[in-house]
Structure formats: C-alpha cells, structure tokens
C-alpha cells in the first residue's frame, strides 16, 4: 500500500513539473533582464508574454537569459519574435546563454540570425 502510494505521488509530481516556467526579473533603470528557467511551451508562454509586455513599455534594453531554459516550442518562439519586433526601433533585445537544445531550435528556424545572441 505504502509503496503504491509513493509511486503515484512521484508520477503526479513528474507530470505537474512537466510544463513549468520560472521567470525572474531584474530592473536596472531602463534595462530589464528576464531569467527563464524550465520550459517555454504552449502552456507557459503566455506568462512570459505578459512579463515582456510589462517590460517593453519603458525598456530601452531587454535581456533574456535562457541559461536554465531546457525546452522551447513554436509557442515560445512566437513570444520571443513578438518581443524582438516590439523592441525593434526603440531599443535593444539581447538573448543570452542558450543551451544546446534551444540553440538547435534557433538554428532550425532561422531565429539565430534574427536576434542579438550573446
């Protein structure tokens, strides 16, 4: 009984941690940094979009640190594209610390050439 209880619990927590994104934001004058951790997918990308919309209003520099981002789908790419287009002409957007799998998605879709990547 105890064993089955434990097993169920583990499966449930794996499932809920499956689609999670943590966003830490830092503001230094008109420079905004968003640190992303986890997964940027269909379910989590609206929360990043909301944060970016907040920042874009008065940011002259938007830094997206993807150092702890493990996964990005087209839903995440659309949010990043929207952010870059919104910043275009009003300031800089920098994307930094891409891991291998995120880098591959950027290369596959041509996003590597669109963004200022550090």
């Amino acid at each position: 009984m105890g064993l089955f209880g434990k097993k169920d619990k583990k499966a449930a927590s794996n499932l809920s941690s499956k689609s999670q994104l943590k966003i830490d934001d830092k503001k230094d004058g008109a420079e905004y940094t968003l640190l992303l951790e986890g997964r940027l997918d269909t379910i989590t990308s609206p929360s990043l979009e909301a944060k970016i919309n907040e920042a874009v209003g008065d940011a002259s520099k938007l830094i997206l640190d993807l150092g702890s981002l493990d996964y990005i789908s087209s839903a995440g790419l659309r949010v990043l594209l929207g952010a870059a287009q919104a910043m275009d002409g009003k300031g800089d957007m920098i994307v930094r610390n891409l891991n291998q799998s995120v880098r591959e998605v950027f290369d596959l879709t041509g996003f590597s050439n669109l963004f200022n990547i550090e």
Partner: peptide, 30 residues
C-alpha cells in the same frame, strides 16, 4: 499536453532514447 508528453517520454525512456532526440520528439508532439 503534459499528459501526452509524459506518455511519449515514458516510451522513449524505456528504449533509452538519447536526450536530444527526446527533446525533438517532445517538440514535435507538442
């Protein structure tokens, strides 16, 4: 979506699917 991806990942982990392939498959499934 998390349920569908967990179902797929379970099958992939069983056959020792390499992580880069698993991520590509996860994205396609999404």
């Amino acid at each position: 979506l998390p349920q569908v991806q967990a179902f797929i990942d379970e099958q992939l982990e069983e056959v020792g699917c390499p992580m880069p392939a698993q991520i590509s498959i996860d994205i396609a499934v999404e």
